[in-house]
Amino acid sequence: MSKSIKELERIAVQIRIDILKMLSEADSGHTGGSLSAADILTALYFSKMRHDPNNPNWNERDIFVLSKGHAAPALYAVLGKSGYFSTDNFSRLRKLGSILRGHPVRGITPGVDVSTGSLGQGLSQANGIALASKIDNKKKRIYVMLGDGEVQEGQVWEAAMTAAHYKIDNLCAILDNNGLQIDGHVNDVMSVDPLPEKWKAFGWNVIEIDGHKFEEILSSLDKAEEITGKPTMIIAHTIKGKGVSFMEGKVKYHGVAPTQDELEKALKELR
C-alpha cells in the first residue's frame, strides 16, 4: 500500500475538505484538533497500517485508537475514504441515528475498535489490545493518538507506566502536540512540558517530528517498529487548524464548526 508522498499530500487535502464539510453540515464539533491530526491519520491509513476496509474484523489487522476522541471527524474522513463505509455518511455526522457519532463508538462505526471521547482512556485500552496480541503471538501493531491537553489526565501516566513495565513494544503512541486546548494555550492552562523528557523518564522511546511532513511521519513510524523492549512515543509538533490560514493556531476553533462563509473561504484555500 505504499503511496508516494505527493499522493499522500493530495489525499490529506481531500481529508481536510471532508472534515470541514462534515463539521459545517453538523453545525458543531471539533475543527482545530481534527485538522492538526489529519496528516498523521492519512499516513497511517493510506500508507503505514495493515488493514482491510472490506474486512474490518480481520484478525491480523493493525489497530488504531483515537484517544483524543473529539478529533472523530478526522478519523471518520480517513475511514470513509478508505472504504469502511460510504462517504454519503459524512453529511450525517452527529445526527440522530447516524453511524458517525460525536465521539467514536465501537460497534457503531465500521473500523472503530475503541470507544473514546472521555479523555485519557485510550492508551490503557491500546495497552490491553497490545498485550492480548502479544499473548496470541500476533504481529499486529497498535497505534494510539493522544492530544497534548489530554496528557493532563492522570490515567495517561498510569498507562505510560504500564506500557513500559510490560515492555509493550508493539505499541506506538503519537502525541498531537498542537499546543492548544479548549481554554487556551496548553502551557497556560496546565503546563505539560517538558514532554519528551517526561515520556523518556517513564521508560519510553521518544521521537520528535513535524506532524505535517509525511517523510518525517512515515520514517518515525518505521523506526518505532524496529524498537524492541519498550513502547515508542512520537511527539508530533502540529498546528491546530492546519491547512486553513484563519484557523491555524486559533483556540477559537477547538470546539466550533465552520460557518457556511468560513467553509467556503476554507475550501477555496484548500482546493
Binding site: 489497530i63 465501537r106 475498535d113 475503541v114 485519557g120 482512556q121 492508551l123 490503557s124 485500552q125 491500546a126 495497552n127 490491553g128 489490545i129 497490545a130 498485550l131 492480548a132 496480541s133 499473548i135 496470541d136 492522570g154 490515567q155 498510569e158 498507562a159 507506566m161 504500564t162 513495565h165
Partner: peptide, 17 residues
Amino acid sequence: GVAEQDMMGTAAGLAIG
C-alpha cells in the same frame, strides 16, 4: 500497581483482543 483506572482500561483492551 495501584492504578485502578488504568486497570479497567487495560481490561477493556484485552476484551477487544
